[in-house]
Design a protein around this nucleic acid. Sequence first.
DNA 1: CGCCAGGTATGAT
DNA 2: ATCATACATGGC
Length: 280
Amino acid sequence: MPLLLHPPLLRFAQPPGGLDLAATLDCGQAFRWRPHPDIPGCWQGVAGRHPATLRMEEGDVVLETPRPEEAFWRRYLDLDRDYAAIHEIFRGDPVLAQALDCCPGIRVLRQDPWETVCTFIISANNNIPRIRGIVERLCEGWGEPLGEGLYGFPSPQVMARLTDQDLAPLRAGYRTGYLLASARLVASGEVDLDAIGELPTQSALKELCRLRGVGVKVASCILLFAYGRVECVPVDVWIRRVMERLYPAGWPPAVVPYGGIAQQMLFHQIRQNPRLGLEP
DNA sequence: CGCCAGGTATGAT
DNA sequence: ATCATACATGGC
């Protein structure tokens, strides 16, 4: 069997601050990556309409993908952001220093906005394995075939024409209606996801909340995980507990501009060890 | 059976 | 404005 599913190779020199693929691709910000069944440390999946297999080699990122779209992947993996400098700031705070020891190479992705809208609508009051399953069935049913059993994420135009019955196989429950209503708002241009990228964070948040099934928390996830607004902090039950307990006055001032990255590290750490947020 | 899962929408104070 | 409750589904 070929080692390389997607022969054309793309290689990026070790980014500042490093990259931990497992921590980054499997930490609850993206739902379409899975460990390669045979090759340890290797991940395969789809970003938007771009399939790929990823692995690390001596600190470098190595990507197998049908077309070598370097700019796309550089942006997707946030390789141009200096995480080493951000880690330096986090080192000044005992809690974040500890989180950093736990997951040093975690990065915040810049995913496709529409895909992120949908995956986080689905995430509400749901668990991660089930979110994965619903997203997978959505793409297999309505996404563009990309070969090798992979599918792109269906566009808002395609989803806007679907019915409740079309999406019944997803088993998404009441979120199905939210997906369809949101697809129609985006497809009609009533909510403009490109324009939102140019808005100040507060206005962008408000605009995203016009979508069905999108409240403040989901909107924050979209700004953080699709638009690179790393100051945005999605507050779920876990993070709320941690913040109340450990940062009653909010982040240290130097951390504020990178609160979303700090949040992501803490979330990852909690998932590995649920103690952090809970006890005295 | 009841509880929970990266919440949100809705209607009542 | 704040607060309680229902909401589909599946795993434990």
